[in-house]
Amino acid sequence: MLSVDPYPGANVVLRVLMAVFGSYGLTLLAAAALAVGVPFAFKPDAVSFAVMLAFLIYLLSVLWVFAAATLLRAALGLVLPAAVFGLWLFAAAPSRGMS
């Protein structure tokens, strides 16, 4: 169990900030990675697919930020997937130029 925070309000504010900006950042990164990294025979599909999934990712990450027990876990829940998507984007990047 965690200790009682002297500034309970700050916790909520930080979570709101994380949900608004952190989750959005994660979503943008995930969308880019999905659009680059998922191969589709018909290329515009990649865009549609990434957009559809992106909104779900945003939703889930916001839910996570508020559901997580501690601020640290909430932040990790954003940073770790972001790292994964970032790596994926980096790995798949060479195919980017061909459009």
């Binding site: 979503t27 969308a31 659009a35 290329k43 865009v47 990434a50 957009v51 909104f55 980017r96 459009s99």
Partner: peptide, 11 residues
């Protein structure tokens, strides 16, 4: 809202 999807696939 998600401009990176297009940027990712089509630069």
């Amino acid at each position: 809202m998600i401009p990176t999807a297009m940027q990712g696939a089509y630069g």
